Deep mutational scan, measured.
Amino acid sequence: SIKEIEKEEIIKVLKEVNFNKKLASEILGIPLRTLYKRLKEYGI
């Protein structure tokens, strides 16, 4: 599903940037606030 793909992509990017959420949100092209929402939604 799209949610699974998105979750995997978020985890992959977070690992690449050593869990720097600000940098991860910039790489993913989403606002930091949205990233936090996704992390909560996906239980990351």
Rank of each mutant, 00 (worst) to 15 (best):
S1E: 13
S1R: 10
S1L: 11
S1A: 13
S1F: 04
S1I: 11
S1P: 13
S1D: 14
S1N: 13
I2R: 12
I2M: 14
I2K: 13
I2N: 14
K3Y: 10
K3N: 13
K3S: 12
K3D: 12
K3M: 12
E4Y: 10
E4K: 10
E4H: 11
I5A: 13
I5R: 14
I5K: 14
I5F: 12
I5W: 14
I5N: 13
E6R: 10
E6H: 10
E6I: 09
K7G: 05
K7S: 06
K7V: 12
K7I: 15
K7F: 13
K7P: 06
K7Q: 07
K7A: 09
K7D: 07
E8P: 04
E8H: 13
E8V: 08
E8F: 12
E8L: 13
E8A: 15
E8R: 13
E8N: 13
E8Y: 13
E8I: 11
E9I: 14
E9K: 15
E9V: 12
E9Y: 15
E9L: 15
E9P: 02
E9T: 14
E9H: 14
E9C: 09
I10G: 00
I10N: 01
I10A: 03
I10W: 03
I10E: 01
I10Y: 05
I11L: 14
I11N: 03
I11P: 01
I11F: 10
K12C: 07
K12A: 10
K12T: 07
K12M: 07
K12G: 05
K12S: 07
K12W: 06
V13N: 01
V13E: 01
V13D: 00
V13G: 01
V13R: 03
V13C: 06
L14Y: 04
L14T: 01
L14K: 00
L14D: 00
L14S: 01
L14W: 04
L14I: 04
L14V: 03
L14E: 00
K15P: 01
K15M: 12
K15F: 11
K15R: 13
K15Y: 11
E16P: 01
E16R: 11
E16G: 09
E16K: 11
E16A: 14
V17F: 05
V17M: 06
V17N: 08
V17H: 06
V17Q: 05
V17D: 00
V17L: 05
N18V: 04
N18I: 03
N18F: 09
N18H: 10
N18R: 09
N18E: 06
F19H: 06
F19T: 01
F19V: 01
F19G: 14
F19R: 03
F19A: 03
F19C: 09
N20Y: 05
N20S: 06
N20L: 03
N20P: 01
N20E: 03
N20H: 05
N20R: 04
N20V: 04
N20D: 12
N20A: 03
K21P: 14
K21M: 15
K21E: 07
K21H: 15
K21W: 15
K21F: 15
K21I: 15
K21R: 09
K22N: 06
K22A: 09
K22C: 08
K22I: 12
K22E: 07
L23Q: 08
L23N: 04
L23P: 01
L23K: 12
A24V: 05
A24H: 00
A24P: 00
A24Q: 00
A24I: 02
A24K: 00
A24W: 02
A24T: 05
S25N: 01
S25G: 04
S25C: 07
S25V: 04
S25T: 04
S25D: 00
S25F: 01
E26S: 09
E26K: 14
E26H: 10
E26D: 09
E26Q: 14
E26I: 14
I27D: 01
I27C: 05
I27L: 10
I27S: 04
I27V: 08
L28S: 01
L28I: 04
L28G: 00
L28K: 00
L28N: 00
L28D: 00
L28F: 03
L28R: 00
L28A: 01
L28P: 00
G29R: 06
G29H: 06
G29P: 01
G29C: 04
G29D: 05
G29F: 03
I30W: 08
I30D: 00
I30F: 04
I30G: 00
I30N: 00
I30E: 01
P31C: 07
P31Q: 07
P31L: 06
P31Y: 03
L32N: 02
L32S: 02
L32T: 03
L32F: 03
L32A: 03
L32R: 03
L32E: 04
L32C: 06
L32K: 02
R33T: 13
R33I: 11
R33G: 12
R33Q: 12
R33V: 11
T34R: 05
T34K: 08
T34M: 10
T34G: 04
T34I: 13
L35C: 02
L35K: 00
L35Y: 01
L35H: 00
L35M: 04
L35P: 00
L35E: 00
Y36G: 06
Y36R: 13
Y36E: 15
Y36P: 02
Y36N: 14
Y36A: 11
Y36I: 15
Y36W: 08
K37P: 02
K37L: 12
K37Y: 07
K37D: 15
K37I: 10
R38S: 06
R38D: 03
R38E: 05
R38A: 14
R38V: 15
R38W: 15
R38N: 06
L39Y: 02
L39T: 02
L39I: 13
L39M: 15
L39C: 07
L39V: 04
L39N: 01
L39Q: 01
K40H: 14
K40V: 12
K40Y: 11
E41V: 05
E41L: 07
E41Y: 07
E41G: 05
Y42M: 14
Y42F: 12
Y42P: 02
Y42R: 03
Y42H: 07
Y42D: 04
Y42A: 06
Y42E: 05
G43M: 08
G43I: 05
G43Y: 07
G43H: 10
G43F: 09
G43W: 06
G43K: 07
I44R: 05
I44N: 05
I44A: 05
